[in-house]
Design a protein around this nucleic acid. Structure first.
Length: 570
RNA sequence: GGGCCCGUAGCUCAAUGGUUAGAGCCGGCCGCUCAUAACGGUCUGGUUACAGGUUCGAGUCCUGUCGGGCCUACCA
């Protein structure tokens, strides 16, 4: 038994997430966490909302709320949606909660003691009407190079030139449109990342089992050279900047930059879990306090890789303290909506809360994992979704359960029948099952979600193939014992299929396991070499055929949803 | 602009430089009748974006072109 610390990239507080966000970190992290638990390992699965930064303040203002109220409300919405999708976090925290404040301030102070922090004054654009300093991307103006009138403060989208907002001609606030802006001096703390460059590189060099995408992004940053990076911002909402435990002089109106405090919330959320009675958090994070044997696995979208492979490790390693660093890392590409971007404003795509209004979570979980964006972006289309669900869940798995349980109910008095002995058909099924289970287990261990789903599906298909040749309905006419073997094998197959399905479709799996009376403690991940699993259900055990597990998605559903969410045409 | 990734069957995707490029879905045919018009079997389907090159051998390596995506540190 091993110990796994699993984190998913933190969803930003700025509104509910769409299916792409779900598929790119939270859902695969959940599938992996469930798998490791079923293997009997000790798992701690942590997530949280990422609540600081300019967009949160703006979204709150737009909603006519103060930021704290807005975040509290959005947190609840996101937490409920996660529950709806059966994301089995041990704790779903908030980056605005006290533990993250304490930890973030601690890291900064310790980094400063280690000579990795420097205070510098720079010029930033201040919007007088908005009463705030503007992040680079919130300043618009005329590009000094090409004359493009809607250049952003960090880069001109027309000619590609990297800019400093000070350079823009006719600068204006992208928030209010006001041109009443001016450069002002402002002091900020800079993290001297170049001093950590070689230690980070040595660490990445050893991380040979990271995916190619992750390593190439990390090396890109390292090859270009790490730069001193500002870790504070002129904002009101966030974590106060301290020095020796007091507000740092001159930083009364400043907070930490959201990207500095957000990853620290992985630890902060674990502390929240601990304070809520979960257990000892240091045992998971401090290698001097028991975290030595922890395997830390991170899930994230590709946009997040640099921050997890370079920035956050600079913070952690720079502290000089024995914190746990990531061991295994899984990065995803994007799920697209018909090949384009999900877009709230243009009503393209489905968001987590909307999805649950349409169908139970298992439907989405299965599709998004069977088509996970692992090697490249993956297009979500309603038509593909319909085909996949109807074929894999309704026809292959759902109907398998239905046909065998109903047959057992009508011809064998709703019991796991006794009598007969397994023969060639049963041996063939058991052989194939053992081989595929080995592959399935390996795919889960490697976090190859598409391949795992395909293998699981192949196992379900093997069940239907078996029933076709065993044909207990035919055998029953001449040889009741032969039919009994077929039904008994089929019912045990139901149990096994559902057990293996738990990481992907936990609700449906539970329905099946409950219906055929598999006790909670007999639902662990099976061993491929254990042939006893085919006679695991006690003979004579009463079963109850479950209701139809998955209803099919109809053409009329697709038409309606396409209209509502902007399908192929929109 | 720079860097990285991708382009394979109608669709979604596989394939340590090594037999005839595979699988699912879709479509055709056959079988079965326990089951959600479900299941099983079988067949059709390819100039691996394009043009060169290296190699005994290239989907895979190299160069270029076209198309798409991502990153580029102040969106998060």
């Amino acid at each position: 038994m091993a110990r796994y610390l699993i984190t998913s990239a933190l969803p930003y507080i700025n509104g509910i997430k769409h299916l792409g966000n779900l598929a790119g970190s939270m859902l695969p992290a959940d599938v992996h966490a469930r798998f490791r638990r079923l293997q009997g390992h000790e798992v701690l699965f942590i997530c949280a909302t990422d609540e600081h930064g300019t967009p949160a303040e703006l979204a709150a203002a737009e909603a006519g709320q103060d930021v704290a109220t807005y975040c509290a409300q959005q947190y609840k919405i996101q937490r409920d949606a996660c529950e709806g999708f059966r994301l089995s976090f041990d704790h779903f925290g908030r980056s605005s909660n006290p533990p993250n404040h304490r930890l973030t301030q601690h890291f900064c102070e310790v980094l400063e003691k280690n000579g990795l922090i420097e205070e510098r004054v720079s010029k930033q654009i201040y919007s007088i009407d908005d009463k705030r300093f503007l992040p680079d991307r919130y300043v618009e103006g005329t590009c000094p190079v090409c004359g493009f009138e809607r250049a952003r403060g960090d880069q001109c989208d027309n000619c590609g030139t990297l800019l400093d907002p000070i350079e823009l001609k006719h600068p204006r606030s992208k928030i209010s449109g006001s041109t009443n802006v001016e450069p002002r001096d402002t002091a900020h703390l800079f993290l001297l990342q170049p001093k950590m460059q070689e230690r980070i590189r040595a660490w990445v060099d050893k991380a040979t089992d990271w995916p190619q995408l992750a390593r190439s992004i990390a090396y890109k940053w390292l090859d270009e050279g790490l730069i001193d990076r500002s870790i504070t911002r002129d904002l009101a909402w966030g974590i106060k900047v301290t020095q020796n435990g007091q507000i740092r002089p001159g930083f009364e109106n400043k907070v930490f930059y959201v990207w500095f405090d957000a990853p620290i919330e992985y630890i902060g959320s674990t502390v929240e879990w601990s304070e809520a009675g979960g257990g000892d958090w240091e045992r998971w994070w401090r290698t001097d306090k028991g975290a030595d044997d922890v395997t830390y696995v991170q899930f994230m979208g590709k946009d997040n890789v640099a921050f997890h492979t370079v920035s956050f490790p600079v913070t952690i390693m720079g502290s000089g303290e024995p914190w746990k660093l990531v061991d295994r890392l899984k990065a995803f590409n994007w799920v697209t909506w018909y090949g384009g971007k999900f877009s709230t404003s243009e009503k393209r795509g489905i968001f987590m809360d909307q999805a649950l209004e349409l169908l139970p979570s298992d439907y989405w979980r299965w599709y998004l994992m069977a088509n996970a964006p692992e090697s490249s972006d993956a297009a979500f289309t309603l038509e593909q979704f319909q085909q996949t669900i109807n074929a894999d869940l309704a026809n292959v798995f759902g109907n398998f359960v239905n046909r065998i349980t109903r047959f057992a109910a009508s011809k064998f008095d709703s019991e796991v029948p006794d009598g007969g002995a397994p023969g060639a058909n049963e041996a063939k099924l058991a052989d194939e099952f053992a081989e595929r289970l080995k592959a399935l287990t390996q795919f889960h261990e490697q976090m190859e979600f598409r391949k795992a789903a395909a293998e699981l599906r192949a196992i379900w298909v093997a069940g239907n193939e078996y029933l076709q040749v065993a044909a207990p309905w035919t055998a029953l006419k001449t040889d009741r014992d032969a039919a009994a073997v077929g039904v008994r094998t089929g019912l045990n197959a139901c149990a096994l299929f559902a057990i293996l399905a738990q990481p992907f479709i936990p609700d449906a799996a539970k329905t099946v396991l409950d219906a055929i009376g598999v006790p909670e403690n007999n639902r662990m991940w099976p061993n491929p070499d254990d042939r006893g699993v085919w006679d695991a259900l006690p003979r004579g055990l009463k079963i109850t055929p479950p209701d139809v597990l998955f209803k099919k998605i109809e053409e009329t559903d697709i038409a309606a949803w396409s209209e509502r969410f902007g399908g192929a045409g929109g």
